[in-house]
Design a protein around this nucleic acid. Structure first.
Lengths: 221, 221
DNA sequence: CATAGAAATATTGGATCCAATATACAATGT
DNA sequence: ACATTGTATATTGGATCCAATATTTCTATG
């Protein structure tokens, strides 16, 4: 008998499942900031004990998605406007560099994929999916940089402000502007102009940050 | 009776203590890469149960200091030369920006402190302490950037290559060169020349990375 | 009625126990 | 001798139990 070798994937642990589910809920805004996360309650939701829940919460805290106090529990982390500004500034620096490194490595296949994600973003009407298609577009290009460590940090920093970014996209012209900027970034990439793609990415992020901060200042008073 | 309000620090949990101890051991190289970390064994060392140990290990994994496999346990993470190069490149980008942001905020007190750390580094003869004094010098300046998120990432990225960086410092002229470069960085900061301080910091990190990689290529064959 | 203090309840942190899996090793057949 | 299979041991993942702490509720008292 002969079989093709198959890479058997380790089944995810309970902690992995809980972690991913909570992470998704937080970055999508399904869990409001400040909301209490009771270990028992979460454990029951996932039909498990508190042990894997605690491990998941510990990981979330390391990533800054929740804050915990000893014997008091965990709450979904909220960010001050200053913190949000800092993270947007950080992302602008980092992602501008990542796209610069990516452009020389872009091949036909990757560009086609990015093109599709770009179109998808432009056409998407379900605001709940904007965050996902936005990520897909950027990451499809970023992958070409072949910098796994950079991308891990990019992902972590985006996780922390994704909720707010999604809010920004729903602003009056947020989506339209983002779609236009994506087109410009894609064109620069397709032309192989790394400096332009970098500068556009930087502006894309800083613009989103600025209009979000304006919005939040009004909202929060 | 009147008392000054004191910020009572939450006593550290067992998991915190184990985490910090293991983190220190790993970044200082006391635990060799590839070394097995048995939960039971660690628990006994700290006179505790495996629960806090597991939480500590989970955090270490999130920070990339160890790798774990389900039902097989944790080992101290090792980095390939490519990964080391990527992290040095990343640090150069990030820390160059941090020092640029810090320079305009530097005051007399901070400069004095940095001056002392710089001298201390130059005089330090105990190679085990170089890593610490090196951190002290850079961080004393970085703090002035007032960018807590940046600094958190800087710390995490330094943690991952600190073992190797310490090795680099022990190289023939590693310390002498680093001390000279620190002097130059300090002078640029004292002069208020942000661009120069940034460029020097960038070169400082890239130099260290390059000579480390040369060393590792020989060592690893 | 308002408030301070005590008791009751809820929640987290840690210890111990059990289940799932991996590793080491011996037994067995060729 | 060698590979294979079964078994014993070690180790991790998860469940349950207990201790420490926080929060709420109740009660007594002014």
């Amino acid at each position: 008998m002969k079989l093709d070798a198959v890479d058997i994937r380790q089944a995810a642990s309970a902690a992995d499942i809980v972690y991913e589910a909570l992470r998704k809920a937080i970055i999508e805004g399904a869990l409001a900031e400040g909301e209490n996360l009771r270990q028992d309650q979460i454990a029951q939701m996932f039909n498990t004990s508190r042990i894997p829940v605690r491990e998941a919460l510990s990981r979330l805290e390391q990533h800054g998605l929740i804050t915990t106090q000893r014997y008091k529990g965990a709450v979904v982390a909220g960010l001050s406007i200053e913190e949000i500004e800092e993270i947007f500034e950080f992302r602008a620096l980092l992602e501008a560099e990542v796209i610069r490194l990516a452009v020389p490595n872009l091949d036909r296949k990757t560009l086609d994929l990015a093109r599709r994600h770009c179109d998808e973003f432009g056409k998407e009407s379900d605001s709940a999916k904007w965050g996902e298609t936005n990520r897909n577009f950027h990451y499809s290009l970023y992958e070409a940089a072949r910098r796994p460590y950079y991308l891990q940090i990019v992902r972590a920093s985006l996780d922390r402000i994704d909720r707010y970014l999604r809010a920004q996209l729903t602003l009056t012209d947020g989506m339209k502007r983002a779609a236009r900027e994506h087109e410009a970034i894609f064109d620069a990439c397709a032309k192989g102009d790394a400096d332009l793609a970098s500068a556009l990415t930087r502006d894309h992020i800083l613009d989103a940050g600025r209009s979000l901060v304006v919005f939040l200042r009004e909202q929060r008073g």
